[in-house]
Simulated scan of single mutants.
Amino acid sequence: MTGLAVTRVGHSCHLLEIGGRTLLTDPWFTVTPTYDPGEPLAMSVAGLPALDAIVITHEHYDHCDLDALLALRDVPVIGPGTVAVRARERGWTDVRELEAWDSTTIGNVTVTATPGRHGVHEVTYVIQGGGRTVFFGGDSLLVPAFKELPGRFGAFDLALLPTNGLCVRPAGGMQVVMNATEAAELTAILRPRVAIPHHYAFTSGRLGDLMITKGDREPLAFASEVARLVPATEVRVVLPGQRVIPVSGS
């Protein structure tokens, strides 16, 4: 087996080192007054290491900031059809279009799209390489198909999960992201060695938070729920820029 490491850039954007490859998840580098990760980004696009792939769950701007990555159009982009259209429009030629249960390989790393549900079409991912398995949840809701994942993929080393339970006020308070309790329930299904919450600091700005979105910005609620439901899993609340090694190489 080879090592596994993850560095949180901010929001749901991570640098994932697995199987000797480096993948970037759900990129977001362009901050606006009404769309802010609510925490400092760990690095700029110029500060990114060499990437082997960019993995995107859906087309929302805070997960699919392709315009900020135009200098990296030689890097493969992996995403569902809605993301693939945007990537091709912006000049990417190596676009891997995946829907639920489709897979592609980056060297010896396999990326499999798994079901998800959000306000727009979304997939989640299982990423495997070097004998390690990671689940990346983007900002999905909890869906029944997640119960299939251990049977399909075996043991999980790491789960990266949204936790803020984001609701859209103009849509009658419709929930579009899993909350801390639901993320803990998914952790109990996957039973990873380590779980890292993300997608919790996001803000729509002072007025946006009052009129458009509502979410829980406290990641420790997730840690508390996991401790109750699946104490064998270690929860790491990771600040942007922190590099975590869930399991060392062997």
Rank of each mutant, 00 (worst) to 15 (best):
T233M: 04
A232C: 10
T233G: 04
V237I: 12
V230W: 13
P240V: 01
A232Y: 04
R243K: 13
P231A: 09
V237M: 01
G205L: 01
V235H: 03
F222E: 08
A221L: 14
V230Q: 15
D209C: 04
L220Y: 15
L229D: 03
L239G: 00
E234A: 08
M211N: 08
P219V: 09
V238K: 05
R236V: 12
P219I: 09
L229P: 11
P219A: 11
V237P: 00
A227M: 00
T213D: 06
T233V: 03
P219E: 13
R228S: 07
E218M: 13
D209Y: 03
G205H: 01
K214S: 13
M211R: 10
I212Y: 06
K214C: 07
L239R: 11
L239V: 00
V238W: 02
D216S: 13
T233L: 03
I212C: 05
R206C: 00
E225Y: 10
A223K: 13
P240I: 00
L229H: 06
V235S: 07
V226P: 03
L210Q: 12
A223R: 11
L220N: 15
G205K: 01
A232K: 10
T233F: 02
K214L: 05
K214I: 02
P231C: 08
G241M: 01
L229N: 05
V230S: 15
R206G: 00
L220G: 14
M211C: 12
V238T: 14
A232T: 13
A221I: 12
R243P: 03
L239A: 11
G241L: 01
R228D: 09
L229M: 10
R206Y: 03
V230I: 12
G208T: 07
L220P: 11
V230D: 14
G215K: 12
M211S: 11
V238A: 13
F222N: 09
M211L: 14
V226L: 04
P240M: 00
I212M: 10
E234K: 12
E234V: 04
E225G: 01
F222I: 08
V238E: 08
L207D: 02
K214T: 10
T233K: 10
V235P: 05
P231G: 06
L220A: 15
I212W: 05
G241T: 02
G208A: 08
A221Y: 13
S224P: 07
G215D: 11
A221S: 15
V237Y: 02
A223C: 08
Q242R: 12
A223H: 09
Q242E: 13
R236A: 12
G241Q: 05
P231N: 09
G241E: 02
I212K: 02
